[in-house]
């Protein structure tokens, strides 16, 4: 498996990145760890005449934990997230989810930005970011803009990021309450058959807020507001769980693939969500 020939750029600053993107338009793509893009190039399913390697562009590898928000640079890897003790304290769901992505080698190379910006419905971080109500910072020739994760995904590999823009950082409100990232997969290294991100707040036995997003059950990640709402005001009892699952099932739209037919995926999505809610609630 040999990719087609391409020109390689390794700019040292974002201005240069943007000018190459401007010059080559659709023919240029940025790359962080490359672990989604390079296999696609080798299979010749992605044609990238101009490849821009972001690794020398500074300022995208930091994890900043503020009083209310957490800012994570786009080049932070999954293994950086796993190893960051302070981050695991304030947003443990990031570590829990990262450990379920791919395998150790891939986590060393795979970045948060790449996982998010690629728009692959199989990636785990997009749904998680929607659950956490993250905001993505993208920069283009016209400067920076912020796009809510919940508005970012339009279709498989189609996002609100314009061709000339680069995703540079993710800002997450410090999560509150209990969390869970629950994922069913066939083996390590596989995408999810179904995965659920849940962040839930318990106030005196009542759920006061709940955010739920599902992964690989539609052509985009699915933030299910109605599923979260179904839990709010309840004691997260069986009826509430049923209501949340029913609401979520109304929002997802899985397709048949080697992981199974639609009926199976819907069923597993429900089971996984129930388990995620139960675990998150037990931690809330």
């Amino acid at each position: 498996m040999i990719p087609a020939a391409f020109e390689y750029y390794r700019p040292k600053d974002m201005d240069k990145v943007l000018s190459i993107l401007e010059e080559h338009g659709d023919d240029a793509r940025v790359m962080a760890g490359g672990h989604s893009l390079i296999p696609m190039m080798k299979l010749r399913m992605a044609d990238v005449p101009h490849l821009i390697d972001l690794q020398d562009v500074g300022g995208m590898s930091e994890i900043e934990i503020g009083a209310d928000t957490i800012k994570i640079g786009a080049l932070v890897t999954q293994s950086d997230i796993i190893d960051h003790a302070a981050l695991a304290d304030v947003a443990p769901i990031l570590r829990e989810a990262s450990l379920q992505i791919a395998d150790p080698q891939v986590r060393y190379m795979g970045t948060l930005g790449g996982n998010i910006a690629n728009g692959d419905p199989g990636n785990d971080m997009p749904g998680l970011m929607q659950c956490l109500d993250a905001t993505f910072t993208v920069v283009g020739q016209d400067g920076e803009r912020a796009i809510p994760a919940r508005d970012f995904y339009e279709a498989a590999y189609v996002t609100a990021r314009e061709d000339g823009e680069v995703l540079t950082a993710v800002t997450i409100p410090r999560p509150k309450g209990g969390h869970a990232y629950e994922k069913q997969k066939r083996k390590i290294g596989d995408y999810a058959t179904a995965a659920a991100s849940v962040q839930i707040v318990n106030d005196g036995g009542k759920c006061v807020s709940a955010a739920i997003a599902m992964t690989n059950l539609s052509d985009t990640p699915v933030f299910s507001k109605t599923a979260g709402d179904a839990l709010v005001g309840t004691s997260v009892d069986d009826a509430a769980l049923k209501a949340a699952v029913a609401a979520m099932l109304g929002d997802i739209d899985p397709t048949e693939d080697n992981r199974g037919p639609v009926a199976f995926k819907n069923h597993v999505a429900g089971v996984i969500l129930r388990r995620a809610i139960a675990r998150a609630w037990s931690r809330a």
């Binding site: 390689y8 390794r10 490359g34 672990h35 390079i38 390697d53 080698q105 891939v106 060393y108």
Partner: peptide
């Protein structure tokens, strides 16, 4: 870092 060298271009490893 442990890396799968089939999924990295030599130029990336400069």
């Amino acid at each position: 870092k442990s890396v799968k060298s089939c999924t990295m271009f030599a130029v990336q490893a400069e």
